[in-house]
Computed example of a mutant assay.
Amino acid sequence: MSITNNAQHSDVIYQADPAAVQHLHGVRESLHQCCKPYLNHHVCVQTLDGQMHEGVLAGMDGRHVYLDVTAPEMSRGFFNPYPGVYPSPYYPGVPYGGNAILPLVLFELLAISLI
């Protein structure tokens, strides 16, 4: 399957400002450098829309911070539905009464503080 670049079908609706893109790359790098020493520490994370999440800083990648939280506190995340059959250190809990990994988008974070 080939993709053609047809002008009538490829009108750009939005394109990020190059200065904003460069700034966002800097924010991502800064977050990685600040958070790396605090992996496996108990933290409180505040998002831009005011949500607060407490948990253990479990990891990071280019798009997300992963917070290990108690399942009843969370409304989204990943969990291991078969903890006895497929044990995993990354998804250790069950949906209720256990732990779950809550992915938070890097660019929606306002503050991360140690607890």
Rank of each mutant, 00 (worst) to 15 (best):
N99H: 12
P89Y: 00
A16I: 13
P18S: 06
G59F: 02
D49G: 05
S2I: 14
P37Y: 04
R28T: 06
H53K: 01
H53L: 05
G84I: 07
S113A: 08
A20S: 08
L48G: 13
D68M: 15
Y91Q: 05
P92Q: 01
I101L: 12
L106R: 13
C44S: 14
L102W: 03
R28H: 02
Y82D: 09
M60I: 09
N5E: 06
G97S: 12
R76N: 06
P37T: 08
Y38K: 07
G93Q: 00
M60V: 06
I13M: 12
S113W: 07
G50L: 03
C44V: 14
P72G: 11
V65G: 02
P95D: 06
Y91F: 10
H25D: 13
V21M: 03
Q46C: 04
H64W: 04
G97Y: 08
I3S: 05
T4K: 14
Y91G: 04
V45A: 01
A19T: 10
E29Q: 14
V94Q: 07
L110P: 00
G77L: 09
M74E: 09
M52F: 10
L102T: 08
P92W: 00
C35E: 02
A16D: 12
A71G: 10
H53I: 07
Q8F: 02
Q15P: 00
L24R: 15
V45I: 15
L106M: 15
G50T: 03
E108L: 10
H42A: 07
Y14M: 12
F78Q: 14
A71D: 04
L67F: 04
A19H: 00
Q22F: 06
G98I: 13
D61T: 15
V12M: 12
Y90R: 05
G77S: 07
A58W: 02
T47P: 01
Q46I: 11
M52T: 07
A71P: 02
L102N: 03
Y38F: 15
P18A: 09
P87Y: 04
A7E: 09
Y91K: 03
L67M: 08
D17K: 08
G62D: 01
G50W: 03
A71F: 08
H23T: 13
H53R: 02
Y82R: 09
Y90K: 05
V21W: 00
G98F: 02
V69M: 07
P89Q: 01
H9W: 12
E29D: 14
S113L: 03
Y14K: 12
D11A: 15
C44M: 11
H64G: 02
T4Q: 14
G59N: 03
A20F: 02
G50Y: 03
N80W: 07
F78D: 08
H23D: 09
V65D: 00
A58M: 11
F78E: 11
